[in-house]
């Protein structure tokens, strides 16, 4: 078990180094920018005195290394700075917007897991037959389709032509006014369910379907491809053939051995796509006016709100690094070969 411990320590150090680098890079980005952030802080019509005041308040008049140390100190204390536009703490904003993003990301990945495993294993069973080819096109298509465009197409079809789903947002206006959801987890569907607000539940489900579906296309492609290739390999392995030869029922073999073996890599792919979806959600959220981190970031980009953009970058990186760390450790634990690499 010693080698696992060494691997663990190495891996954690790497994660910390990555986070350190991101913080340093974001600091450089925010202080190398030629124009001064004080201006945005005080608003478009501010006077010179107001700007001076803001420069002091933001510590922009201090030497760069002091600013750097301060930046670190603040981050350690969970202070990602204040949004230039709304003057609210960025971390607070991120935590406000995060649940909406997580809600579609989690749902999209659950969908991706179910659809991906089904497609992938069916495709492997029917290797080189028509179904396999079709599924291959679908899965390659899933990773090739520009999500922002696909989102528009779904709006055009399901709202514009068929009229069966709402265009965007998280809830209808009349629900907001007369059946408001009491926020507990921040996941509207879950909050509505546990507070027994069925009207709002139905409404929020209707709203989440399109964005979650669009967001799921990429991971569906990813999971399908991984499950397929693993299943093809596993089905070829000797113990499966042995089991078949010994008269085990096909579906038993299929579920108990083959699928089980293919599931681990599928979960790994899913873990990666989960981290990916956090940024993937950006474009999708904007189109569906989904009040999550993506909408927040894109607005921040339009407003040149650097602390917000960089805050999201730091937060997103930490999130991403920890998911990867968790997955790597899990994999190393399950499969000793990984540790040797």
């Amino acid at each position: 078990m010693a080698s696992f411990k060494t691997y663990l320590i190495k891996r954690i150090i790497l994660a910390l180094v990555v986070i350190y680098f991101v913080i340093t890079i974001t600091f450089i980005l925010s202080h190398v920018v030629p124009s001064d952030p004080a201006e945005l802080y005080v608003g478009p019509k501010a006077t010179a005195e107001q700007r001076e005041k803001a420069i002091k308040e933001l510590g922009l008049n201090q030497p760069i290394y002091i600013q750097y140390l301060r930046y670190f100190q603040n981050l350690v204390n969970g202070d990602l700075g204040k949004s230039l536009r709304a003057h609210t703490p960025v971390l607070h904003d991120i935590l406000t917007y995060l649940p909406a993003t997580l809600e579609i990301v989690v749902l999209a990945n659950i969908v991706a897991l179910i659809v991906g495993v089904a497609f992938g294993s069916y495709s492997a069973l029917k290797k080189d037959m028509l179904a396999d080819h079709l599924i291959r096109i679908v899965s390659v298509g899933g990773v090739s389709i520009p999500s922002f465009w696909f989102a528009l197409i779904t709006q055009l079809v399901f709202f514009g032509i068929l009229g069966i789903f709402p265009l965007d947002s998280r809830l209808s206006s009349d629900i907001q006014l007369f059946n408001p959801i009491h926020t507990i987890t921040g996941f509207y569907t879950i909050d509505a369910l546990i507070t027994g607000n069925i009207v709002a539940l139905v409404d929020s489900v209707r709203h989440i379907i399109l964005p979650a579906f669009v967001l799921a296309t990429y991971p569906i492609g990813l999971v399908t491809r991984m499950v397929r290739s693993m299943m093809v390999e596993v089905l070829n392995e000797n113990y499966i053939r042995f089991a078949k030869a010994n008269g085990f029922k096909d579906n038993l073999i299929y579920y108990k051995y083959a699928l089980k073996n293919a599931l681990t890599p599928a979960l790994m792919a899913l873990g990666l796509s989960f981290a990916y979806s956090i940024t993937g959600a950006f474009l999708v959220e904007v189109i569906f006016s989904w009040p999550g981190l993506g909408t927040y970031t894109v607005n921040a980009i339009l407003e040149n709100d650097y602390p917000a953009i960089l805050g999201v970058t730091i937060f997103g990186t930490i999130f991403y690094v920890f998911i990867n760390l968790f997955l790597d450790i899990l994999q190393a634990y399950l499969d000793p070969r990984v540790r040797l690499q």
């Binding site: 980005l29 990916y276 040149n304 970058t313 990186t317 991403y320 690094v321």
Partner: peptide, 22 residues
Amino acid sequence: MRITDVFLSFPSLLFAIALVAT
């Protein structure tokens, strides 16, 4: 390879966004 690992551990799209935005 350590440098590469560090770069690989960034969420690349997010990083690109931050970079272009600034």
